[in-house]
């Protein structure tokens, strides 16, 4: 926020400044508003980057037959993985709602529909997976199905986000996660979990760093 030398004059706000200062005011306010409304973007990337990198690594370390140097029991590993995903979803929801507070209109509509697309798609993928398991799909195949399907969901919604907000970052990360969704099944269970951790996790974390740099430059 721009500061002025004379607080009384600034408090009244009637006095014009010289053109250079007025232009600086415009640029300052534009940046303030854009940062305030876009401040949540790096948070999404970081919480999901950590959830995917750490979560899938822990899941892989707990999976029977993994070559992990540190092996974990499967049940706690799955609980840690699920807790990280649930935490990331909860943080994203809170941050998304907070960033849009006090704003009504087009952005609210777009944000609400986009935000709700995640649980809608997530539940649909979960239910299809459960149906497949009931039809006899093994846990190994189900793990491959869930890992790739959720990554493909992220791809689809990141591509939609890139289209809505004209975000190159979302486009690139979405495509990288799309590649991860496509190639990880060929590593087989449980190495698909390791591959997903190592492709998607760093891509999201790099997105977070880039988003912070972009916000600072905005």
């Amino acid at each position: 926020m721009t500061q002025h030398d004379d607080p009384d004059r600034d408090a009244a706000g009637e006095a014009p400044l010289d053109p250079r200062e007025m232009l600086a005011l415009i640029q300052g306010e534009t940046t303030t508003v854009r940062r305030a409304l876009g401040a949540q973007t790096p948070v999404y990337y970081f919480v999901w980057g950590i959830a995917w990198l750490v979560g899938y690594l822990v899941y892989w370390a707990g999976a029977p037959g993994s070559d992990s140097p540190i092996t974990l029991p499967i049940v706690p590993a799955v609980i840690v993985f699920a807790a990280l995903i649930v935490a990331a979803a909860a943080i994203s929801t809170v941050v998304g709602i907070r960033s849009n507070r006090g704003i009504k209109g087009t952005s609210q509509w777009v944000g609400t529909i986009y935000g709700l697309s995640w649980p809608v798609m997530g539940i649909a993928i979960g239910m299809i997976g459960m149906g497949l398991i009931r039809q006899g799909m093994s846990i190994e195949l189900a793990t491959i199905y869930f890992t790739s399907s959720y990554a493909l969901m992220v791809t689809a919604l990141y591509l939609a986000g890139a289209a809505i907000w004209r975000s190159i970052d979302q486009l690139v990360i979405g495509l990288i996660i799309g590649v991860a969704a496509t190639v990880t099944p060929s590593f087989g269970y449980p190495n698909n979990l390791l591959a997903m951790a190592l492709i998607a996790g760093p891509a999201l974390l790099a997105g977070g760093v880039i988003a912070i740099i972009r916000n600072r430059r905005a």
């Binding site: 009637e14 014009p16 200062e21 007025m22 005011l25 300052g28 508003v33 704003i103 009504k104």
Partner: peptide, 23 residues
């Protein structure tokens, strides 16, 4: 608009999407 406070208000509102309103 050529008064610092009103310019700041106008610039902030102009940074919103044209279809948006702010509380």
């Amino acid at each position: 608009i050529h008064a610092s406070a009103r310019l700041r208000i106008t610039a902030s509102l102009a940074a919103l999407d044209p279809g948006d309103r702010i509380a």
